[in-house]
Simulated scan of single mutants.
Amino acid sequence: MNGAARWWLLSDLHLGVSDDDPRRPGAALPGFLRREVLAGAGTQRHVVFVGDTFELVGLAEDESLARLESILIQHLDTFRALDACAARGVQLHFVCGNHDVELARPSVAAHLSALLSPLEPTRVQVHPWFLHVPHVLVAEHGHQHHALHRIPEVLRSAINGTDQLNLPPLAAWNADPSSSRLSRAGAVARSCLASELAERRIREPEYDEMLQSESLRLALDEAALRDLARLSRFRTVSALPRAATRMVLAAAGHRIAGEVGPAAARRFARTLEEHGSGVAWYVSGHTHRALESALEGCTTRYINTGTWCSDVRGRGPDQLDHRSFPYALVDVDSNGAASGGLRYWRADGGSAAA
């Protein structure tokens, strides 16, 4: 990257076709974009949505296109603010999460670009797996390290344009809540088998070719990308009992949060370092726990951007104050040095460090 740049990263807005979340993330986001992003000048500006921006899970291609339009119509002020960002030179990045993995489909990604930046679609970029800024940061949603949400062949749809993304166990269970428990359990079992087979396929030459194509886009060594793809693995023997526990708790009106955090982040960051591609920051979402910490055994720092929806699971100020929204800020100076950290933004205009 040449020149100074500023990166704002946030995740887990879970924008849907309704606006009934008590924290109303879709109503808060336009103010953030206008006061924090559009008010800045003099640097390259990037806004990164680190997954689960939209509720699109389990939809066919045509349904995804229609749902995306419906969401943006429901959150019209957000749509206008994003459009204004793109029109004023801000680069918009959307990393796919487990709730909006359908963005990985080329047709859906192209439709999002056309909606938000019709005059210059390249202002909007979709990253099916993760975003890589050499020596500065990587940003991935984090679900690929959580067996209940992992989609091993995430690149297949993005590169081949296919509609073959297998629903992970929890998504398979929730795909049709109106069906019987027996039917849903059967869907989970089929999902587990499909995930096991997918784990085998990502170790075959055909998937290596997809990794080679993605490595060029990411400006990352192919061997490093291959190791990252195999860093975590779905295993039915461990995933199925955890999925069953989640199902029982959900039926009783309870839920538990999956632990996807520094352990996976440390493995990811150390793998990059081993290939000479270390970064200053590793950023993820998914757990809904806003957090910043050091990573043991490497120089990379970890940031989880938490969530802007009401399902907050961390212990930060956003747990107690529904007007406080977490995000990561990373500044890169003209020499390539990066600084920043976890921040909290308030809808009344306040902005403070974690």
Rank of each mutant, 00 (worst) to 15 (best):
R190F: 07
L167K: 04
A194K: 10
A86R: 11
H93G: 04
S213Y: 07
R301P: 04
A263S: 12
L182Y: 09
S157W: 00
H14R: 02
T53E: 05
G142H: 08
A187Y: 00
T43E: 14
G285E: 04
D221M: 02
A84T: 13
L68E: 06
M247I: 15
A347I: 14
S334G: 07
A244W: 13
G51K: 09
T271W: 03
W345T: 12
S70W: 01
L92P: 07
L72Y: 03
N160A: 10
L38Y: 04
R123S: 14
R6K: 11
V124D: 07
L9V: 15
G316C: 04
S351E: 12
A41C: 08
E259C: 02
R301L: 01
D331R: 12
L82A: 01
W129P: 05
A223Y: 04
M1C: 05
E36K: 12
S179Y: 02
V47I: 09
G314D: 08
N335C: 10
A189E: 15
G58P: 08
R289D: 05
P326T: 13
E292V: 09
C192H: 07
R230W: 07
R301A: 05
V133G: 02
S238E: 15
Q91W: 05
G306N: 10
L155Y: 06
N304W: 05
R67H: 13
L272S: 07
R123L: 06
E63F: 01
A175F: 05
R80G: 00
D227L: 00
L193V: 13
F54D: 05
Q44H: 13
L38I: 07
D62Q: 14
H141W: 08
T271P: 02
A110K: 11
R301S: 10
V312R: 13
L170C: 00
R255G: 13
S157Q: 13
G42Q: 11
H14F: 03
N335K: 14
I202C: 02
R266P: 00
P22Q: 03
R6G: 07
G306L: 06
A109T: 09
A194D: 14
L82Q: 03
T122S: 15
L291M: 09
I303F: 03
T236Q: 10
G350C: 01
F94E: 06
W345N: 12
E296A: 12
T43Y: 03
R217L: 09
L59K: 14
H46Q: 09
T287I: 08
A243E: 13
R266E: 14
E296I: 04
A39G: 15
P152W: 02
M247S: 06
G51S: 08
A171R: 14
G142L: 03
D318A: 09
C96S: 11
Y327A: 11
D208N: 00
H254W: 10
L119H: 13
T307R: 03
P128M: 03
L131P: 08
A28K: 12
V283C: 12
I71K: 04
A187T: 04
